[in-house]
Design a protein around this nucleic acid. Structure first.
Lengths: 237, 237
DNA sequence: TTTGGATTGGACCGTCTAGTCCAAACGCTA
DNA sequence: TAGCGTTTGGACTAGACGGTCCAATCCAAA
């Protein structure tokens, strides 16, 4: 703990562009740190936490091993930093998704499918699936890692979804006797199936797989919960 | 010419089981082997494959390390033997379950719930959840391990379930337009949710959790697919 | 009793890795 | 230019682990 530590300064800048050419130019304080985090993400996602040595990360980052230890203390600190850096934008993104879907609307099916696709993409898309797998696989040693990540698929997200379902029921667009249960069912249909198809995050889902999978889940969901009067149009494709 | 030396366990030893040519008396030959397998199951399930040394297994089995190597060649062989020993009864058990459920019957809901509970119990009950977790977590190094195990939750089982659903549709007890898709939905509702609740096999499911989870899954399934005429009685509880 | 495979204990090797330590080099800023 | 914090490379410790080798021993069958 007593190690000197550079300022936390966790910028929300996750700009895709990396490898800025300026070797020493602009204020190198956080630069090394960012490079280590990015390299860690790459190499951890590919090889797993346990099977990746600190030195490997250092080399991948073009940095000495000692620098890694200077910044993150020990391997556990490095892993934690990498994971939380990756998981940070997720909750926010989930709110964004929910902000524009599952509301009162004209085409309920299209709306739910849109939500489902974006939710699945968020958790199992190309950017996140590998790291998600690693976290799942090795969370035994660090269970707290899954907390931040899981937030967007756990109780917090579920509560919000249940709220939306309840409101849709109140305005007559759905006929759901138990919103909480329905939210869990929806998660199972979307994320459960997505996780299986993606081998629990080991392979990224293709867009067409996401489409089919979400269409299937939303179909049974609306078949079960669309009001009797509503037509519940089957997918036109 | 050396002594016995179970020579070159490396490459050529791809034979699944060395099938001890039981040169010896009936009892002693397999006894050590069985003890090693049982100990391996215990200790692997608790600590994982990678973090458990061969010597640990040997000690837990009350056997010398060399004996383990004599029987299984190397660590990979040991793991494979342990897993397949555990997974062996699963497929058979699934057939048993399916043999007595999802057939023509009077109470469809009770029948489906019975099937669901037994399926979930088979894959995530107290006996199997720990080992399942370990397999899932460490299948990166040995993907083939999941094959035998996954058989009861993968395509094979799914095909059988789809067959049952199709027949039930033909005799008018269900109204399912796409049996294959419905089978996948059923799996997501039952196993997907069960896996999440059990933290992907890390903790065994309690019987009441299984009950609630299966009741929920079957409820939406029948709500979606019960024929319009059928009453589809909600769970009396 | 002899025989020979099965078993044992333990030394041993090579490799990998987390983490430490340090002196020299570097680069920014006063 | 001098000072000061960061970085670097590399040597080093300590421990874990897979796997091998071997001499001694056990034990049931012939």
């Amino acid at each position: 703990m007593g190690r000197r530590r550079v300022a936390q300064a966790k910028g929300s800048d996750t700009s895709p562009t990396q490898l800025r050419a300026n070797v020493h130019a602009s204020h190198g304080v956080t630069e090394k740190r960012v490079r280590i985090l990015q390299a860690g993400m790459r190499v951890f996602a590919r090889n797993g936490f346990q099977r990746t040595s600190v030195e490997t990360v250092a080399i991948a980052a073009g940095v000495s091993k000692q620098t890694v230890y200077n910044h993150f203390g020990d391997k556990k600190g490095l892993i934690t930093a990498v994971v939380s850096t990756a998981a940070d934008p997720l909750a926010e993104e989930f709110d964004t998704i929910l902000g524009s879907t599952l509301a009162d609307c004209t085409d309920l099916r299209a709306n739910f499918e849109d939500f489902g696709r974006r939710w699945v993409r968020l958790l199992l898309g190309p950017d996140t699936s590998a790291l998600r797998w690693v976290m799942l696989a090795e969370s035994e040693s660090q269970p707290e890692l899954l907390a931040a990540w899981g937030e967007v698929s756990q109780e917090g997200a579920l509560r919000q979804i249940a709220g939306r379902i309840e409101r849709l029921t109140q305005i007559g667009q759905l006929d759901v006797p138990d919103a909480w249960r329905a939210a869990r069912q929806l998660r199972a249909l979307l994320l459960g199936e997505a996780e299986r198809v993606s081998a629990f995050g080991r392979v990224a889902l293709r867009e067409e797989e996401i489409h089919e999978l979400v269409a299937s889940g939303i179909d049974i969901f609306l078949r079960a919960y669309a009001p009797a009067g509503k037509t519940n149009p089957p997918h036109p494709q």
